[in-house]
Amino acid sequence: MKLKQLEGHLGEVAAFRDPKVQLEQYPTTAHLAARMLYTAEATYGDIAGRAVVDLGCGCGMLSLAAALMGAGCVTGIDVDADALDIAAENVEALEAEDVVDLVHASLCAAGGGDAGALAPNHALLAGMRGRFDTAVLNPPFGTKPGNKGIDVAFLQAACAMATGAVYSLHKSSTREHLVRKAASWGYTCEVLAELRFDVPMMYKFHKKKSVDIAVDLLRLSPAGADKGATEL
């Protein structure tokens, strides 16, 4: 599939009807999702015929992008039932029921290493460790009170679930921190692209019509080639 085609199909994916500020629900645009999954497949061959997991799938944008790029199966996981309802409608609209499964679950739990920071939900992850080839995610950035460390927790969960590469979007301002974290888990971290994440005026506390945030598309890969799942 060509990039333009992919973005065109993803243009049909519906966004949050009633976004929840505490969950930091910002839609991943078709433009971003298309570039992310197209690169993952065209440059690295990480999607077609692979088992892909989408952490914090929201309305299913990245899951559907993975399905359109030929993933063998995709599992989208989210904590929000309303978002999953829309994701299910989107999966049906794009006729991807034969590829995408959705799971309602919380990927994070209290009790991270740093005081007050969230950690991966190890109890849930126990059964999912190393079951996927590739992980894709646009995690919450952890900018809301109570969400401290959630971006790192999502990324760590992704590394545990996938045996191969992890593609994730993060605020550029956190780059050095994440590169260090990735190294401590035995991963190398590349910045594939610097993007402008257009956050439209969605919530009451937004004062401007839209704000551009500098976002990195990161690719984490296990430092030793073809190793098993990461021990957390």
Binding site: L102, V103, A109
Partner: peptide, 13 residues
């Protein structure tokens, strides 16, 4: 509707 609910209550976590 095809979606398993794996969420737990506060006291079960």
């Amino acid at each position: 509707k095809g979606i398993p609910n794996m969420l737990l209550g506060e006291h079960e976590i």
